[in-house]
Amino acid sequence: MFKHLTKIVSAALIAGSFMAGSSQATDLQDILSEGKVRIGVPVDVAPFGSNDANNNPVGLDVDMATNIAEALGVELELQQITGANRIPYLLTGKLDIVISVMGATPQRALQIAFSSPYSGISGGVFGPKDIPVSSADDLTDQTIAVARGTTQDLLLSKLAPDANIQRYDDDATAAAAFTSGQAELFATADIVAKVMMTQDPSLELYPKFIMMFNPTHIGVRHDSPQLLQWLNTYVFVGMLDGSLAALTEKWLGSELPDLPSL
């Protein structure tokens, strides 16, 4: 019985990894010859990627995806993703490019390749004024909601390993935990806190402390070096001609700081 079981399980695993493998390796030439590029954008991080009143994806990352497909001269196939599944989507070959408010870390760079930064956000911990926290060291037993696996999660876990961190599947669920009172603080991006306060003025999401400025990068698989080089050229030119600064101005309402190339 168990012998058969191990056989079945390993057969399923091999079949699974074969399927995952077969659709990979789409570099620049494959995209051009297929006439289609598959780009993942966030579904839950306004103003980078969310749905408007008519349920159409809108945001800075959505504009980036549209502009990139246009510059490539191919059809855009947009896929909405969350912070937790963006890297698996890319690695299993379901997407060619991920533009999803993604910060670069050496650990992530072991899995995927990052382009030069095209915009940026500040990550921090936000909450009501009367909670006496102004640095990670001030955290005691306050509950902090965060989307699992995001830069905020990784950084907060490192800065305050003993803090009471509640991890949720995505930013929207973590935000729900804060708005329903299940969590006292919310670790997220400054722009998310700002958008939430604009939508609901009764919410108190003031910055308690900022953990870091995160430049955002486009992600591709390591097996698409030509695509990566093309994206870097695209970002380089966009930085010089001011089109990326205009995009940041349009969606974030702030100036794009000078960002080093990668």
């Binding site: 699974g16 990894s17 995952a20 937790a84 890297i87 698996p88 690695l91 299993t92 650990q107 992530r108 072991l110 899995q111 909601a145 699992r148 696996g149 999660d153 990784l154 509640q166 991890r167 949720y168 599947d169 669920t173 935990a177």
Partner: peptide, 22 residues
């Protein structure tokens, strides 16, 4: 999905740290 840390929650946590989803 509500942040409970049972087996699947732990798996998602480990996935978010190692990126070894499979």
């Amino acid at each position: 999905s509500i942040g409970a840390t049972e087996l699947f929650g732990q798996a998602a946590f480990i996935d978010s740290r190692t990126y070894r989803s499979f």
